[in-house]
């Protein structure tokens, strides 16, 4: 009886995945008159290549440090080392990914594909921020709507509403909220501070764009996880609360000793579902920022699509898909291992 389901999964998911897997070891283009060649791990190497370089500050002829306008030491330009410098062949074509000061020196972490690295880090950041935050907010909401109040069902419905609206629609609407000139958020903040607030270009600044995207993503999905929490809350027998009340436990004590222990399994599920969804981050990036400003909102799936489709580099795009699969697979194996231990 599992037949139809397995056949469909095999043809429409597993087969294409293996095709992608195979393509990631070639130089296949989406469309090209050139023959396809097997290139081994080259696609993966060019994605993952990293190197380090330590530079000493520039000194004048008398040995004094040459200071920049801001009084900090200055360093030689990286491109002198990474562009066709015969002394540093292993760094050729790499770019600065991160750098920090170490004493007088400056240490550079270089990557051959900085955009991919940023996408990788962003995706992890997204997961690491969204999973706990969204989980916690959803729990808060679930506690809020688990009260016995008249009309509470209406509130449950409202909190769940963004979930049924398409992410494309949500992302388009939030562009109006985040607009840098007279967006709704700036208008609201200006109103609350009696005009004292200076408008922020939420999606236009590298420091705020990703946070803005995270906030919106949580807004859209938190209702769904609220409902999962709610299901967990409702499985906790009433007599436990009764007992806590008789023993004169405070609200916090009740939560810590009665509610939370009863929610363990739900917590695991919520965390897993959010993690999976968070790794697939794509639509928001596509509709709101295209990965910008300066790669601050890149994501792995967006890069996979961008390369495979937009830049017609199906081999490179597939390599990212394969890496993403391996990452999520290992994480879910770890999560599974951790959950096994508990039960």
């Amino acid at each position: 009886m599992a037949g139809p389901s397995l056949v469909i999964l095999a043809v429409f998911l597993i087969l294409p995945f293996f095709l992608a897997f195979g393509l990631s070891f070639t130089n296949q283009r989406l469309i090209s008159p050139n023959p396809t060649e097997y290139v081994g791990l080259r696609n993966f190497e060019s994605l993952l290549g990293v190197g380090t370089l330590t530079l000493e500050p520039l000194r004048g002829e008398n040995g004094d440090l040459i200071l920049g306008d801001d009084g900090a030491p200055t360093y030689p330009r990286l491109r002198g080392y990474t562009r066709n410098n015969p002394d540093y062949p292993h760094l050729n074509g790499m770019r600065e990914w991160i750098s920090w000061s170490w004493g007088e020196n400056r240490i550079y972490l270089l990557a051959s594909d900085v955009v991919f690295m940023r996408a990788l880090v962003n995706t992890f950041l997204f997961v690491l921020i969204v999973a706990p935050l969204q989980g916690a907010l959803a729990l808060g909401l679930a506690l809020l709507v688990n009260q016995k109040l008249k009309g509470i069902n209406a509130f449950r419905a409202i909190f769940f509403m963004p979930v049924v609206v398409s992410m494309v629609v949500v992302a388009l609407l939030w562009r109006f909220i985040y607009d840098g000139q007279n967006g709704l958020l700036n208008t609201l903040l200006a109103f609350l501070t009696f005009g004292g607030f200076k408008p922020v270009d939420w999606l236009g600044n590298t420091s705020t764009a990703f946070g803005a995207m995270i906030a919106m993503s949580i807004w859209q999905a938190v209702g769904f996880h609220m409902v999962i929490w709610l299901s967990g809350l409702q499985t906790i027998p009433e007599h436990l609360y009764e007992a806590a009340r008789i023993e004169g436990a405070s609200r916090l004590q009740t939560f810590v000793h009665v509610t939370w222990p009863g929610l363990r399994n739900t917590a695991v599920l919520v965390l897993i579902v959010i993690t999976m969804q968070a790794f697939a981050l794509f639509t928001q990036v596509d509709v709101m920022t295209n990965g910008g400003p300066i790669d601050s909102t890149q994501s792995l799936v967006y890069q996979a699509v961008q390369r495979g489709y937009g830049q017609q580099d199906i081999a490179g795009g597939s390599a990212i898909s394969v890496l993403l699969f391996l990452i999520v697979l290992s994480i879910s194996l770890i999560q599974r291992y951790l959950t096994r231990e508990r039960t």
């Binding site: 998911l13 699509v305 795009g317 898909s321």
Partner: peptide, 15 residues
């Protein structure tokens, strides 16, 4: 479950 459709769309098209 962990293969987003976007990442296999082109091979799927070929299939």
């Amino acid at each position: 479950l962990i293969v987003p459709l976007e990442t296999i769309a082109i091979p799927l098209l070929l299939v």
